[in-house]
């Protein structure tokens, strides 16, 4: 569906250079550089507090980096310590409509039906007509098997269903890339699978994705590259199949054994 139309012309879709981010005196990101090709799936793993969420939030500028450079298609922004890093609301919104983001908590609009949840943003942000928005929402809901729930409210759905609606709500903006921040962490174990398979489907269709996850098996299967975060830097990175089987550092080995043996 949302297959990226652009040919693989060699330039990465997303380029982060030396991203730094401080909250007060605490430096949370200490120079992170990542390039993501169109259609590439990058997994980000690492301990709690290592800066994974902060990095994702810097990509769509929900957090403004303290330093570094972000390129996303035509959008370029440079940040420097001690400079006022202000970007116009219009540019921000344009960037955000092209990068979808899904969170650990589903955050559906509780006062709107499932259908309205999917229609709302395209209508008010992109000016899509109600009819077109409805048509698209029907298709998206049909694809996740929730078409007959269109008039239900989020509270009437299971966590897994809500999270899948949250994913198609983001897809309704027809983004060029998707950011996933531990989207299965809040789910009951038996509901994790349905969300992961939707993500795997998107990956197969060519969506560019950055996925923060503790699901190591999923990362190994679906992502081509894995970044291991530790204390605000990418401590290790490489092709997922190799890196996740054969980490080099003790820190990553410890981290992996911890998450792999974690049982619910």
């Amino acid at each position: 569906m949302t297959r990226s139309e652009q040919p693989q012309d060699g330039t990465p879709l997303l380029k982060l250079q030396n991203i730094e981010k401080s909250f007060g005196d605490v430096k949370v990101l200490k120079g992170v550089s990542v390039e993501v090709e169109r259609g590439e799936i990058v997994a980000i793993i690492g301990g709690s507090g290592s800066g994974k969420s902060t990095l994702l939030r810097c990509v769509n500028l929900m957090e403004v980096p303290s330093a570094g450079r972000i390129e996303f298609q035509n959008f370029v922004a440079e940040f420097a310590e001690g400079r006022k890093n202000k970007i116009s609301g219009e540019h921000l919104r344009q960037l955000r409509t092209q990068i979808g983001m899904v969170f650990q908590s589903y955050n559906l609009w509780p006062h709107k039906t499932v259908m309205e949840n999917v229609m709302h943003a395209p209508m008010i942000v992109k000016g899509v007509s109600r009819r077109d928005a409805a048509e698209q929402a029907e298709q998206l809901l049909a694809r996740i098997g929730l078409a007959e729930r269109r008039n239900h409210y989020p509270s009437q759905l299971s966590g897994g269903q809500q999270q899948r609606v949250a994913i198609v709500r983001a897809l309704a903006m027809q983004p060029k890339a998707m950011l996933f921040d531990e989207v299965t962490s809040a789910l009951d174990p038996e509901l994790v699978g349905e969300v992961l398979s939707l993500m795997a489907e998107l990956a197969n269709e060519g969506m560019t994705m950055l996925i923060v996850t503790h699901e190591i098996a999923f990362a190994r299967e679906v992502s081509s590259r894995t970044l291991f975060f530790d204390q605000g830097v990418i401590a290790e990175s490489g092709p997922s199949k190799e890196l996740l089987r054969n980490p080099q550092s003790d820190r990553m080995r410890q981290f992996l054994s911890r998450v792999l043996h974690e049982t619910y």
Partner: peptide
């Protein structure tokens, strides 16, 4: 999370208030 999701979808601050936050 309501604010955050609205922000991530590119919804303006004013529209977030009038269509998402205030009705709730």
């Amino acid at each position: 999370g309501q604010m955050e999701s609205a922000m991530a979808l590119g919804i303006s601050r004013r529209k977030t208030m009038t269509t998402i936050i205030l009705p709730q």
